[in-house]
């Protein structure tokens, strides 16, 4: 079961069982963005509150599999209280972590990413060995990205 252990790390199961920053924020002042995974029916709503270029609060609601839910929870913990620059940086780094090079599809290795900078998020790197699940892991991040774009405009 070594493969499964790669995917379902203890940190992931912990965030799935006890999701952080679960709930909603009043809009306005907060912004909301919705993400869907039409293939599996996962739905996620990300609420963000930005003050002076700082993401002062984030809440997440919706439903999905352990990978999408834990990724959302880990994301919320990683970006809360960070400047927007840092948040954008985190999104870019995470997407890079989830990138599979087609040449390595049989034995995908994450591209060079500073794992230390990711903290607990590094627990999700095992997902790249399960290409079908990458879209689960990335759903919350794309939704946050969308929310930030909506906020700017």
């Amino acid at each position: 079961m070594s493969n499964l252990d790669d995917l379902y790390r203890e940190i992931i199961l912990d965030h799935y069982r006890s999701p952080r920053n679960r709930g909603e924020l009043a809009t306005p002042p907060a912004c909301r963005a919705e993400g869907f995974n039409p293939l599996c029916g996962d739905e996620i709503t990300v609420f963000i509150q930005v003050e002076n270029d700082v993401l002062v609060d984030i809440k997440i609601s919706g439903h999905g599999c352990s990978i999408s839910q834990s990724s959302a929870s880990l994301m919320s913990a990683a970006v809360k209280g960070k400047t927007l620059d840092q948040v954008h940086q985190a999104i870019a780094t995470f997407k890079q972590l989830m990138t599979v090079h087609e040449a390595n599809i049989d034995d995908p290795e994450p591209v060079a990413v500073d794992i230390r900078a990711l903290g607990e998020l590094a627990a999700l790197q095992g997902v790249v060995k399960f290409p079908v699940r990458i879209k689960c892991a990335i759903l919350a991040w794309n939704t946050l990205d969308q929310g930030l774009q909506d906020f700017v405009s």
Partner: peptide
């Protein structure tokens, strides 16, 4: 307590092929 995708993922490790999802029947779901 286990999402269908996770059920299917664990079962795959046992060689068991099942299908998670809405099965193209969303009004029924």
């Amino acid at each position: 307590g286990v999402h269908p995708h996770d059920v299917a993922q664990v079962l795959d490790q046992f060689g068991v092929c099942i299908r998670p999802g809405h099965h193209c029947a969303k009004p029924l779901m």
